[in-house]
């Protein structure tokens, strides 16, 4: 548990020696597996039911989506660099890498917005077919999680350059890092199951 240097407190003693925040975050990520698991299995059940609308292979743009997966992967790398910089109490590098992660995340979400608009124009409305409803719900949920992650990253950048003591926010950076990596890991599963496995 990182000390808060401004208040000379002994870090709170815990029975397992682990920090409350980190334990709480991992529990939260465990339950998020169930949430995304539910959405993915709804999609897998309904992927073939296109009714009169376009089929998955007609609207998916594999090259584009694979680049967006690559971008999310790189943002995971920059996130890890930010976390290790925070642990080495180098606030300047932490702020830099957090900003880069946020920007990469923004490009990923931009790519998603483009993909949704393109598909909408190709006739895949939210209620066109079961495939459409479940696809938009799944990728939409993931997109919202990424956007929340970006907002948290930017607020962290805002807080960091105001905090006087380098490295005092290392734990918060690590928490947001765990969240970001989880969102990237979920995209790894989504990218393979939804885009690469042809219907």
């Amino acid at each position: 548990m990182a000390e808060t240097a401004t208040h000379e407190h002994a870090a709170h003693h815990t029975s397992t020696g682990l920090s409350n925040n980190k334990l709480g975050m991992w529990l939260f990520l465990g339950s998020e597996c169930l949430l995304f698991g539910g959405l993915i299995s709804t999609y897998m059940l309904y992927r073939g039911r296109v009714g009169t609308g376009p089929t998955p292979s007609q609207v998916f743009d594999i090259p584009f989506t694979s680049v967006s997966s690559f971008v999310l992967l790189m943002s995971s790398l920059t996130m890890v660099l930010a976390v290790s910089a925070a642990h080495n109490k180098d606030d300047r590098a932490t702020t830099l890498w957090l900003t880069i992660t946020a920007l990469l995340g923004a490009t990923f979400v931009g790519g998603q917005v483009y993909e949704f608009t393109a598909m909408y124009n190709e006739g895949l409305g939210f209620s066109t077919s079961l495939f459409a409803s479940s696809f938009y719900t799944l990728t939409g949920f993931h997109g919202v999680h990424v956007t929340v992650g970006i907002i948290m990253l930017m607020s962290l950048v805002g807080i960091l350059n105001k905090s006087k003591v380098p490295g005092s926010r290392a734990e918060t950076v690590e928490m947001i890092g765990l969240y970001w990596h989880f969102v990237d890991v979920v995209w790894i599963v989504i990218f393979t199951l939804i885009y690469l496995i042809p219907v």
């Binding site: 743009d61 971008v71 920059t78 923004a106 490009t107 931009g110 917005v113």
Partner: peptide, 29 residues
């Protein structure tokens, strides 16, 4: 940033979209 990035991709050719995406992200990196 997100909206303008999406607008660019919409205007550009389908295949060029991926290339542009790589350029922007690697430039940021």
């Amino acid at each position: 940033i997100i909206i303008s990035f999406a607008e660019i991709m919409l205007a550009v050719e389908r295949s060029a979209g991926a290339v542009l995406f790589i350029i922007v992200s690697s430039w940021v990196l």
